[in-house]
């Protein structure tokens, strides 16, 4: 287990304060925070590129805070990728093998396997300068995986990619994790965190303000910053399918949500913002194609007014104002209807 204990580091205009978290083998750990929060610096400290002023990095109860960069169990994919410009894609990917005594045949086999897994087999003889951003991203990932790192560190891996490439890389990362690769991934994008993270630490101004299982952190933000930053609480694993020009997201419990999306069929998440959901007491004619009846299970004050939890078989978080709460006389246990438009339910593929 990786145990980060009370890391502190002062920079010229910024500092990391009391950074502590644990990563178990097999975790998909996401560090989420706005840009400038110190996410990259945490990865650099883990990888040994910079040393902390205080604190310890413990690996299986042995301290590795000051271990040499090349002896650490972290493979870092830099945000700027750091592909070696003078080497072909093949030589870039093989680079980690030069430091291990690897036979020629084994080297070829490993290169072929990793290249196939990252879907870059057709690029092996190319020069990095002739590759697109998405291709470079995969080369960087393949090169780091070649080292077989116990922990794969990813610095904003999806930030420079367009939407269609993002989806492909998200699936690849998810697959790697399901095959046992432990991943520590930093991002500023809550959507990315939501669909990938098993555990999450939220970072703001050099400090971890909340951490834990992703599901818990997203549904129980402990501060206004968290609530605003994470935004969407209604996100459900779903399977997209089409029927007569209509698109549906089928949730794990069989509930169907009408969607308005051009995404191809497959697995992903349905996202609905709490402020896009209406609460009514009876069925009214409306353009909202998603209507569910349910019971209010809780009403919590929120930075935006109130957050009403409605159990429709699936738990929805609905944001309403104090005025609406009073007008509708909402209280726990009351039967209500919720509705939202198909175009307000987004589908994110993984």
């Amino acid at each position: 287990m990786l145990d980060i204990q009370h890391i502190e580091k002062v920079y010229q205009d910024f500092s990391l304060k009391d950074i502590s978290f644990q990563v178990e083998d097999g975790d998909y750990f996401v560090i989420l925070g706005p840009s400038g929060a110190g996410k990259t610096q945490i990865l650099e400290i883990l990888a040994g590129l910079i040393l902390p002023d205080e604190g310890k990095i413990m690996l299986d109860e042995r301290e590795i805070t000051f271990r040499k960069i090349q002896k650490r169990p972290f493979g870092l994919v830099f945000q700027d990728l750091a592909i070696f410009p003078h080497l072909s894609v093949r030589d870039n990917i093989r680079y980690p093998l030069l430091s291990r005594r690897t036979g020629r045949k084994e080297m070829e086999e490993l290169t072929a396997t990793i290249a196939a897994s990252a879907e870059i087999s057709h690029l092996l003889e190319r020069r990095p300068s002739s590759l697109s951003g998405g291709e470079l991203q995969r080369v960087a990932l393949a090169r780091t995986l070649m080292r077989k790192p116990r922990y794969l560190l990813l610095d904003e891996p999806l930030a420079s990619l367009d939407v269609s490439l993002r989806q492909g890389l998200r699936s690849l990362l998810k697959r790697l994790n399901s095959e046992g690769q432990t991943i520590i991934h930093v991002t500023h994008d809550y959507e990315e965190a939501m669909v990938l993270a098993g555990k999450i630490a939220v970072l703001d101004q050099g400090r971890i303000i909340q951490s834990g299982p992703a599901d818990h952190v997203f549904h129980h933000p402990e501060s206004e910053f968290m609530a605003r930053f994470t935004g969407v609480k209604n996100y459900f694993p779903a399977k997209l399918y089409r029927e007569q020009e209509r698109q549906y997201g089928e949730l794990a419990n069989g509930q169907l949500i009408r969607l308005n999306t051009t995404e191809p069929e497959g697995n992903g998440f349905v996202l609905v913002r709490g402020e896009d959901i209406f609460v009514t007491l009876e069925k009214l004619p409306t353009s909202a194609t998603n209507q569910f009846s349910g019971t209010i299970t809780a009403i919590n004050p929120s930075p935006f007014g109130f957050e009403v939890l409605v159990d429709t078989g699936t738990l929805f978080y609905v944001n309403i104002t104090r005025e609406s709460l009073q007008t509708l006389a909402l209280r726990t246990g009351k039967e209500v209807l919720i509705s939202f438009k198909a175009s307000n339910a987004r589908f994110v593929r993984v």
Binding site: L49, I69, Q70, G75, F84, Y95
Partner: peptide
């Protein structure tokens, strides 16, 4: 960055010097 990346990929400082 490139030298750091090479170290992170397990290369010794001497190897980084000669290959990067």
């Amino acid at each position: 960055r490139l030298e750091q990346a090479a170290l992170n990929l397990g290369a010794s400082p001497a190897r980084v010097f000669f290959t990067i």
